[in-house]
Design a protein around this nucleic acid. Structure first.
Lengths: 128, 128
DNA sequence: ATTGACCTTCCAGTGACTGGAAGCCCTATT
DNA sequence: AATAGGGCTTCCAGTCACTGGAAGGTCAAT
């Protein structure tokens, strides 16, 4: 399977797949012409990566998750802990964004948004 | 005013302040010994930057906001538009994170988190 | 033989810092 | 006067996860 076919199957861009090879996440074979040859297992790993990335896991977390996936003797507790830590980070991030959202929404509502220079948004940013 | 004093006043790390000078956001004076000398206006600009960054505006947006702030003839509509666009991006980001959060929360709940290898999180990531 | 779509590698850039090394400057103490 | 410490300077490299682009080899069809 060539890179574009794996890209189609996984939804990952070829560039990203090459990058994942570079950082050691997959080791496709090579054809006589130098082209990468992906096995089913490679494609599967890359699909796994793609879904884990979609859930916001970092590359290093994904690496760990892949290793756990491939370890028959893993404890689900290890997976769960990783997921819970990540979930906590997501919660934190959402809270931060919601705080920005609330402030900004309020300021935007206050702003007349006409041709006059007076603006509560700038006033807020310029406050001491 | 030396850099550490401005850092204290604005809450920005000295490194960040030097970086902001490097990209042309402030132009502090220089003392005979080469030390940066910040005026009140510099400190004020940096405080403005800090608050705008806290609201999640990109550096380029901050640059625009600063220019609008300094333009006596600005229209508040320009400020409002920028803020609204940014708000939309925040909304989008929150929605994405909430989607991750929901999926992950569900998976974490399903996972027994014990010593057995069976794990719905990995099953989900490995699905076709 | 040529076209055009693949594939390859390598290098640079993104955003917004952050860490660290090497070295000058200032003040206070010995 | 020498030294210790802290603060200041510049410059370089690293972060994260790609992404864009250049230069060039390969393949299938015309």
């Amino acid at each position: 399977m060539n890179i574009s076919e794996v890209a189609r199957q996984t939804g990952l861009p070829p560039k990203t797949i090459r990058y994942y090879e570079e950082i050691g996440l997959v080791q496709p074979l090579r054809d006589a012409n130098g082209y990468r040859v992906f096995r089913e297992t490679d494609a599967h790993k890359l699909g796994f990566m793609g879904r884990a990335r979609t859930l916001g896991f970092s590359i290093e977390d994904c690496r760990t998750l892949l290793a756990l996936y491939e370890d028959q003797h893993r404890a689900s507790a290890d997976v769960k802990r990783l997921a819970e830590e990540h979930l906590t980070q997501i919660d934190t991030k959402i809270a931060q964004l919601q705080s920005m959202q609330a402030t900004l929404r309020h300021l935007v509502e206050e702003c007349s948004g006409d041709t006059r220079p007076d603006c509560p948004i700038l006033r807020d940013l310029a406050k001491d």
